[in-house]
Amino acid sequence: MGWTSPEKLIELIESGNRRGLSRAISVVENQLEGHEPLLNYAFNKGGGASLTLGITGPPGVGKSTLASALIKKYRALKKTVGVIAVDPTSPYTGGAFLGDRVRMAEHGGDSGVYIRSIASRKSLGGLSEGTKRILYLYKAFGFDMIIIETVGVGQDEIDISIMADLTAVLLAPGAGDELQMSKAGIMEVADLFIINKSDRPEAEKTGHLLKSTLLTLAKEYQPPVINTIADQHVGIDAVIDAIQSIHRKRRENGIERYRQRIREEIRSAVAFRLNQEIRNAVDVMTDRVLSGDITPIHAASEICRKFKL
């Protein structure tokens, strides 16, 4: 598929053509020619019927495997599923290994499942921006269920949790460290905790620890804790039930959340642009400092002046 105009891509998306969607994603992700009309179209079209689930957690807890098990259930319910699988970009080389598909291979031949692997491109400050843009397109394409899978919980993931309708945090048994992390900030993003690999001996203990940590929250804010063994499809129905009931509750304070989301959408677009500009300016200034022209202190204040700070 060669270069395709945004009008043509919109036409393809409207007719449910996956290749059109796939090319449109590359256009918006890389800011190729025509990305703005595409994004405007997608935002205006929206996707009222879609439900967006964020899945996050440390590496190796089974996020992709859980996503795969969820896809299977949703497909049995005749729902179409779009997945955004995010893996980290190397801050050193800008390259990335996007390996999540391997765990979702069984859905490769299903026309009702679309999986796109994206690199976090974090060094560009772009994780939430890239995901947001693809999310617009997914919603316009009209998937019933959208799953965003990201590693870890940092600022970017918190931003993504604002864009998702709800966020599940995945933990594996036996790691106190993960509970430490939960104290640090996971609490705010988790609508649902899932302890995967629950056939492991430490699962019960991890569950107790987590639940006692959650006791510090008021009762109505305590997220449910569900045990799963994703590779054996155990506990998946409970996850789906929890998603539905949380989503129902969520709708009640939908307006405030929507406002928060729009705010984040604007912020991430601006931050993305600014980040690019700042990087370019820093590169230029770095050369000047290295050539002995100015000090790093001068360089910083010159950049701030340039941006009228």
């Binding site: 190397s90 080389t93 800008g94 390259g95 990335a96 290994f97 996007l98 390996g99 598909r101 391997v102 291979a105 490769g108 692997s117 690199a119």
Partner: peptide
């Protein structure tokens, strides 16, 4: 490929 700055996907 990753170290050469590419985005690499694997089918398994």
């Amino acid at each position: 490929f990753r170290d050469a700055g590419m985005e690499v996907i694997y089918t398994g």
